[in-house]
Amino acid sequence: MECIITGTVIHGKKLGRSLGFPTANLLIDPSLEIANGVYAGRVALTGKPYGALVNIGYNPTVPTGGKRLLEAHLLDFSGDLYGRTISVELVAFLRPEQKFASLDELRERIEQDKTEIIKILETC
């Protein structure tokens, strides 16, 4: 899989931050032909690559008001990316987007996804 999506980081609902997974959010074209779901990814910042847990879609658990977003949680990164242009390389598809019954269920699944993504990125 080779796909790179570039965009300007926008403000979101800051839900990822409250769940312990702050994200860089990009508004993406709904017609972009890539499946909604969770991906292992990479983001390069100032020459350093960061592994990323990436979600593309409409966030069925906490809807985005019809906006299709790419949300990238950069592993081992902290800082402010608002207004910066970043490129997100999608490395591997993990699972389709899904709706969870609660934010606790969502947080647990993100933890599982993160563990799997770290393993994937170690081999790529």
Rank of each mutant, 00 (worst) to 15 (best):
residue 2 E to Q: 13
residue 3 C to W: 12
residue 3 C to P: 01
residue 4 I to L: 12
residue 6 T to R: 11
residue 7 G to I: 08
residue 7 G to R: 04
residue 8 T to L: 01
residue 10 I to F: 06
residue 11 H to I: 05
residue 13 K to F: 08
residue 14 K to I: 05
residue 15 L to N: 08
residue 16 G to L: 08
residue 18 S to D: 10
residue 18 S to M: 07
residue 20 G to S: 06
residue 22 P to H: 03
residue 24 A to H: 13
residue 25 N to W: 02
residue 29 D to K: 02
residue 35 A to C: 06
residue 36 N to T: 01
residue 36 N to G: 09
residue 38 V to H: 06
residue 38 V to M: 09
residue 39 Y to R: 13
residue 41 G to T: 11
residue 42 R to K: 14
residue 42 R to W: 07
residue 44 A to M: 15
residue 45 L to S: 00
residue 45 L to I: 10
residue 49 P to T: 02
residue 55 N to T: 12
residue 57 G to C: 06
residue 57 G to F: 05
residue 65 G to L: 03
residue 69 L to W: 04
residue 69 L to S: 03
residue 74 L to R: 03
residue 75 L to I: 13
residue 76 D to V: 05
residue 76 D to R: 12
residue 78 S to G: 13
residue 78 S to W: 08
residue 80 D to S: 14
residue 81 L to S: 06
residue 85 T to Q: 13
residue 87 S to P: 06
residue 90 L to C: 09
residue 91 V to K: 08
residue 93 F to A: 09
residue 94 L to G: 05
residue 100 F to R: 04
residue 100 F to K: 00
residue 101 A to H: 14
residue 102 S to G: 02
residue 105 E to W: 01
residue 105 E to Y: 01
residue 106 L to F: 09
residue 108 E to I: 08
residue 108 E to M: 11
residue 111 E to M: 06
residue 111 E to S: 12
residue 112 Q to R: 14
residue 113 D to A: 05
residue 118 I to H: 12
residue 121 L to N: 12
residue 123 T to M: 13
residue 123 T to F: 14
